[in-house]
Nucleic acid binder design. Structure first.
Ligand SMILES: [Mn+2]
Ligand SMILES: [Mn+2]
Ligand SMILES: [Mn+2]
Ligand SMILES: [Mn+2]
Lengths: 218, 218
DNA sequence: ATATATTTTTAGACAAGTCTAAATTTTATT
DNA sequence: AATAAAATTTAGACTTGTCTAAAAATATAT
């Protein structure tokens, strides 16, 4: 039986593998998990013993098939619960993370199947992230960062990269949500800030904000 | 912060206090938790340090106000989740226990409040057990065991004592559910089995079965 | 009241998960 | 290629929760 801690490590490795590519370093895991490198080494050995990861001393780790499937299932649960919280329990998208972090560890295949059905098989979570299917496959939407969109092309917000409560509340304040239409009308070259049009009004956003918004162009 | 294990011990003590009355013995807790008496002693000391219980060596434990409220809240969460699973996710009453056992430990006041609202403030769980309110108060229904009902009095099934999957499936098989009307028409004195009428047909049930059904008389 | 049985506690051990500090290996720099 | 810096691992310790075996306290029976 897999422990809660092992699941959290697998999930971190899963996200890092996807983000970077290639083997994941001990320090990268330690950073993401907010723990110490020595703790990571210990855990990574256990995960290797249980065939969740391939680990070679000093060379980082990568998920096995088994590890990838297990991690994807935790992510699936996390995102399905987020949808539940927002759609059914009146949570806003900046309130769901900590609760989903707990709920993702509940063990019951029937529960997650029924939840999926109850929610009518959602494909994305409230932050625009895709929900892995039962086999761990995820749909890859061709989304790009708002900072890379050409001037005057109309695009639609389809996700966020930073999903911290602070950032999400900033977006709420400026009425930027999933599905919101955005057009970039000006870019400042000295600080890479930009002026965008949303809901027929202009807004100036920083490079950081633009970097953390995913859009789809039409 | 209270741990998962501490919550489980508090819940066990809560149920035992209610069942017996007076201080709860180390062995009684060990039995209910399926653990060893020495483990109970260790944990009970921790709970006393944290003011959840009063503990005097060799004299058993009793919950403090704080302990009672904390335990009742775990029970509240357990039962609300059970309602959710049955009402919204197509679980049957014999499938909910293990999942609720996990879900009861999720920490989020907003979650449980919203769940309560979503379920339209249920007062009883799928086994007929009352759901404590936010302050830990529970409604006391005047229910009695079916084995104590006089002959030929019509009564209604309002709960079960044993809520094991085996017993619940037995009840399902014989179409006994919460709300089912029952009339006892005969009692065998030698083994205390009885003949009851449900849905216009006769059924013979053992003393054990009768003992584990709660009914309300009219 | 004394002996016996039962219950409860203590002592010492172990696994999981984490940490600090030191040692080792790898990588980068001169 | 030698040295310095950074990353990683090891060694040893600590906490939580559990266990077994032995000791102590309480309850029961003669
Ligand atoms: Mn988690
Ligand atoms: Mn999300
Ligand atoms: Mn539990
Ligand atoms: Mn129940």
């Amino acid at each position: 039986m897999i422990t809660l801690s092992e699941e959290n490590y697998l999930k971190a490795i899963y996200h890092l593998e996807r983000q970077m590519g290639g083997a994941v370093s001990t320090n990268a895991i330690a950073d993401k998990m907010e723990t110490k490198a020595s703790s990571v080494t210990d855990m990574v050995k256990k995960l290797a013993d249980k065939d969740y990861v391939i680990y070679k001393k000093y060379q980082g780790v990568s998920l096995t098939n088994k590890g990838n499937k297990t991690a994807a299932n935790v992510v699936r649960k996390h995102r399905l619960w987020e949808v539940f919280l927002v759609e059914k329990l009146n949570f806003s998208w900046d309130e769901v993370h900590d609760v989903a972090e707990q709920l993702e560890h509940i063990k019951s295949p029937k529960l997650i199947n029924e939840l999926d059905t109850f929610l009518e098989f959602p494909t994305h979570d409230p932050h625009g992230d895709p929900i892995p299917d039962k086999d761990g496959n995820i749909s890859k939407l061709d989304k790009i960062s708002l900072s890379k969109v050409p001037l005057n092309d109309l695009c639609t917000c389809v996700g966020v990269i930073d999903s911290s409560a602070e950032f999400l509340k900033y977006l709420d304040k400026h009425k930027i949500a999933l599905g919101t239409q955005i057009k970039v009308i000006e870019k400042e070259s000295f600080d890479e800030s930009m002026t965008i049009v949303i809901h027929d009004s202009e807004l100036n956003i920083s490079k950081t904000v633009a970097n953390n918004i995913y859009v789809k162009t039409h």
